[in-house]
Amino acid sequence: MLTPENLASSLPLGDRFNGELVLAVDSGGTKTSCTLARIGADRQWTILGTGGSSAGNPRAVGLEASVKAICQSVKSATAEAGLDSFPCHRAVFAVAGTLHEPIRRDLCRRLTEMELAEECFVVPDLIPLVVGCGSSISIGLIAGTGSVAIGRDSSGNYAVSGGWGPLLGDDGSGFAIGRAALRVTLSSLESGKKNSGLVQQVCVALGARSSQEIKTMIAGTSDLRELVASLAPIVLSVANHADPLCVAITKRAAADLAEIIQSLQARMKIPPDGMNIALSGGVLQADSPVTHQLAKELSTRGFQAKLDRIDDPVLPILNMLAQPELPRRLEILP
């Protein structure tokens, strides 16, 4: 059971005559972004101010640091709008690492105590991809450093696929792409093969000239996941779109992401045609070869879906807030 926390603060009700003031916050493992907007009578939103801060995933940085990062982003957005002393009506905090209900409840309680808004909702960062897309049947796919997908069926049930982390999964992610590039590089160096463009570029990026130097670097790094994922942009760069090794890695990533989507679609019995698939994350940028290959892969598998690239993760949150009512209970299928 996944229940977004809704705790009312002690703030007096604000004047809604000119529209409802809302906060849309996206907080992940790298950064936190906040947008202050006004929702008019026509349920359209107008952005008044934006702000940003550091990572806010409570599982990665801890609860206190998460609250601090979120509050800082809100403070920056309200100050930019010149409304730092005016209470907001509603706030949706879409935060990575909050699928576990106790973490979500604790975070929401702390944010409510900070009186950031009259009503505070904390939801996992996946939820806005399917709730704010305007379609009752939808799938949201995030492929950044890691990979994970969420689906919503016609009954309003939700299911999550992937998100297993680098040890067990993260297929099709920046980490998986970087790992593939690193494996090709180490294999090439150890076999004495002529170095390809990809191998040379990986060596330059790591400041290494041999497999031994790369292995020493790997053994000494404090954040192996980030180091490996940092190599993904090399594979995805425009200059390497025709490189055979990069093409093979890209196709593998797209196939893995398509498999996550297909598994979720079959599990939730969602028709493969007519659904909406929202794409988010650095690997799935509009000009990424993975994005283009994923579209082909899905078509080959019989999907006739609308693919929407989400360039700003805050926008689906604003679309959620523009709805008359936010979902009070979110049923996550086991």
Rank of each mutant, 00 (worst) to 15 (best):
M1G: 04
M1Y: 01
L2C: 09
L7G: 01
L11V: 15
V22M: 13
A24C: 14
G29E: 08
T35P: 03
L36D: 05
R43D: 10
G56S: 13
G62H: 05
G62F: 00
V67F: 00
A69G: 10
V74S: 09
K75F: 04
S76D: 15
V95N: 10
G97N: 01
L107G: 00
C108K: 02
A117L: 06
F121M: 03
V122N: 03
P128I: 15
L129M: 11
V130C: 06
V131K: 00
R152F: 01
Y158N: 05
Y158G: 04
W164A: 02
P166A: 10
G172L: 13
F175T: 02
G178M: 04
A180M: 10
R183Y: 12
E190C: 07
S196P: 05
A208R: 11
R209H: 12
I214A: 10
M217H: 11
M217I: 15
A232C: 06
V238Q: 15
A239N: 15
C246N: 10
I249S: 04
R252W: 14
A258S: 08
E259G: 06
Q265K: 06
A266R: 14
M268G: 13
I270P: 04
S280W: 01
S280Y: 06
G281H: 09
V283W: 08
A295W: 11
E297R: 13
A305G: 03
L315N: 02
L318F: 05
N319W: 03
L326Y: 07
L326M: 06
L330D: 07
L330Q: 07
